[in-house]
């Protein structure tokens, strides 16, 4: 029979090991991403004192969160629909959790896209479903919005709450997402208008597409 002290010691070792594992994982992942965005510099000495280096173009898109879950809940009695969205921005038009009763934690995480390459990028997306296909019922809605996480990220090329069509739609148009650290991150939020007459699990997926833009960043 192990003593109380012994059990605590084992748990302490387990905790420390977990912390160390977490740090090592973070280090490896960051190191790997850095390696990935560096490209293939090739060094070709052609004469004494002369070094050539050619740096490839690189387009890397990093998605910090890929799992947006609104949890479970239902439309408040006597209301024709509920409106829930992942954004922390609450306005008269875009209410967070309006007419919605949560039966689990309501904490949908916003998608965060970052241009980790060295060229400007145009970001579009295609949804696997429209509002009618994903949610169904009477008068459903399924909207998205893109906004700057870094000040000036994708300035002038963002999109303000429009309905998802199922076709390719802009998130950051005109090669607007710069690879520059101070303006390379944007949020993508989703709004669902859920009618009173639907039940069940509703799912869709987005294909985020990053396309290299002409010219230098």
């Amino acid at each position: 029979m192990m003593s109380k002290r012994g059990k605590i010691d084992i748990l302490s070792v387990f905790l420390v090991a977990t912390i160390v594992l977490s740090i090592i994982t973070t280090f490896i992942v960051l190191n790997h991403i850095n390696a990935m965005i560096t490209g293939w510099p090739t060094y070709t000495p052609t004469s004494a004192g002369q070094i050539n280096v050619s740096i490839d173009s690189n387009l890397t898109i990093l998605l910090t969160n890929y799992n947006m879950s609104f949890g479970t809940g239902y439309v408040v009695n006597d209301k024709v629909h509920a409106t829930i969205n992942s954004s922390s921005v609450v306005t008269t038009a875009i209410l967070q959790g309006a007419n919605w009763t949560n039966t689990s934690a309501f904490s949908p995480q916003r998608f965060i896209l970052r241009n980790d390459g060295n060229v400007n990028a145009t970001i579009t997306f295609t949804s696997s479903a429209t509002a009618a296909q994903m949610i169904g019922g009477t008068n459903p809605d399924f909207k998205y919005n893109s906004s700057a996480k870094d000040t000036n990220a994708c300035k002038g090329n963002l999109v303000d709450w429009i309905s998802v069509t199922g076709a390719s739609q802009n998130i950051c148009a005109n090669g607007g997402l710069s690879p520059t650290d101070t303006k390379d991150e944007i949020y993508v939020d989703v709004l669902l208008q859920i009618p009173y007459d639907v039940v069940g699990t509703k799912e869709a997926f987005f294909v985020f597409s990053a396309t290299a833009a002409p010219g230098n960043p």
């Binding site: 387009l59 879950s69 997926f205 985020f208 597409s209 396309t211 290299a212």
Partner: peptide, 21 residues
């Protein structure tokens, strides 16, 4: 395959493209 396991309302796939004009 979409990222985001069961219970995700919205899952994602990522795509990167080079362009020839």
């Amino acid at each position: 395959e979409p990222m985001g396991g069961p219970g995700s309302s919205i899952g994602i796939k990522t795509e990167v493209c080079a362009v020839i004009q």
